[in-house]
Amino acid sequence: MSELTRADVAHLAGLARIDLSDAELDKMVGELGIILESVATVQNAPIADVEPMSHPMPLVNVTRADVVRASLTPEQALAGAPEQDQQRFSVPRILDAE
């Protein structure tokens, strides 16, 4: 397994919209590296004859009819929003998006 680089962590932080200082980046490279190493031991599991599985239940086609159900009221929907304006969720400006 190739080693986690500082650039990898900076890239991931960017995708997750987390602003990391240089010191934090250095710290995270070390900590995440140890975590990845630990998790990597799972790759030693004997899986040669095991089918990949994403869902533990042998179910398919769990669907519902196309029938409208009651939604929340806008007041309920917005009740947990830290900021709201004009019946909409107010969110911070997106950095570097354009």
Partner: peptide, 27 residues
């Protein structure tokens, strides 16, 4: 042009009041 959303029963009517067709799933 289904009556409801893909993964929840909220209506899909165009031009409805803001955040009036939302539920815990689509939020």
């Amino acid at each position: 042009n289904t009556a409801t959303k893909m993964f929840c029963g909220c209506a899909t009517t165009f031009g409805a009041q803001p955040n009036s067709q939302v539920c815990p799933v689509c939020l």
